[in-house]
């Protein structure tokens, strides 16, 4: 088996895990078995997986968004801990206190305020710079976040202080129900370049291409220590959140992305027998982990609030 195929299999496993996980979460919500809300990333898996395959959490920081289940699973594969967190169980990664949007695991942080982690990420990058540590800071943000004022301020600061930050824009075309390009004056690339930052763009159709494309950028920033902005065009097949009926979608985009689903593309590169085994294993694994979480304890106000 060639290296390329091995890579496709490895990345497919992660993409498929994320898709199955997110679908299972949607199902659990429909059945009324989850409280709160969730923001799925079905359709966008290639970005999370391709980008984070490069990353080493013992050295790098990663910051996410409200839509970060995929980032967490791509980094850790810890399904039990994530479901636990979503179900408010003590076995969750932050003992059930955070829920879907507030995740923390080692050097990985997410939060529920659009764009709010970008200034924080510049601070993590600043700390790396000041301490003379190796590693970089990879921060995801969405197209909605690109219209938040402090994201723009933070890009300026990253440029001023030359911090080792890689900003990863997952442009899924919609900020909730708002078609982002209709509410964006000018273009994102022009904004980013306006701050004097290096800008890269890729349509995230092929996870291996995302991986290789990002790897070059990542290695360069690791070595040369300066901020870079990477935009991935991607697409979300699910609603913004659990209550979204997706009445706003643009048919042409829907048709294109469904015909070019990066998960399908990746699957097509792997022998059918392998796909079958991998999928069966992952589906069973996710089902089993969900079952295990049902039996896990809830946090206790006396022990877990401080």
């Amino acid at each position: 088996m060639d290296v390329d195929r091995t890579l496709y299999i490895r990345l497919y496993k992660k993409m498929f895990l994320i898709r199955v996980f997110e679908a299972k979460v949607e199902e659990m919500f429909r059945l009324g078995k989850l409280r709160g809300t969730t923001h799925g990333c079905i359709g966008q898996e290639a970005v999370a997986v391709g980008v984070l395959e490069n990353v080493d959490l013992s050295r790098d920081y990663v910051t996410g968004t409200h839509r970060s289940h995929g980032h967490f699973l791509a980094l850790t594969g810890k399904v039990f801990e994530l479901i636990s967190e979503l179900m408010g169980k003590k076995t969750g990664i932050v003992r059930g206190k955070g829920g879907s949007q507030h995740l923390h695991y080692g050097n990985f942080y997410t939060n529920g305020i659009t764009g709010g982690m970008i200034p924080v990420a510049v601070g993590l990058g600043m700390a790396k710079k000041l301490k003379g540590e190796e590693g970089v800071v990879i921060s995801f943000l969405g197209d909605g976040g690109m219209n938040e004022g402090y994201v723009m301020e933070a890009l300026n600061l990253a440029g001023v202080y030359k911090t080792p930050n890689i900003f990863v824009l997952e442009n899924n075309c919609y900020a909730m129900s708002t078609i982002t390009e209709n509410f964006t004056s000018g273009k994102f690339d022009e904004r980013v370049k306006g701050f004097g930052l290096e800008y890269h763009y890729l349509k995230a159709l092929d996870v291996v291409e995302v991986y290789g494309f990002f790897k070059k950028i990542y290695e360069r920033v690791r070595k040369e220590r300066y901020p870079v902005f990477v935009e991935f065009e991607t697409y979300r097949f699910c609603g913004h959140s659990k209550s979204d009926r997706r009445e706003y979608v643009v048919k042409e985009w829907e048709d294109f992305w469904h015909a070019n689903d990066p998960l399908e593309k990746c699957r097509s590169r792997i022998p059918a027998k392998v796909v079958e085994d991998v999928e069966k294993e992952i589906i069973n694994f996710v089902e089993e982990e969900f079952r295990r979480v049902l039996a896990a304890p809830y946090p206790d106000p006396g022990e877990d609030l401080f």
């Binding site: 601070g123 004022g149 600061l157």
Partner: peptide, 26 residues
């Protein structure tokens, strides 16, 4: 000179930056 970080007028972002620095142990 290395320990005073002068900023532009971007209170939101440099406060966020400080929070990130504190998260990283500074």
């Amino acid at each position: 000179p290395e320990r005073l970080i002068q900023t532009p007028m971007s209170e939101q972002a440099f406060t966020g930056m400080a929070i990130g620095m504190a998260l990283a142990g500074l």
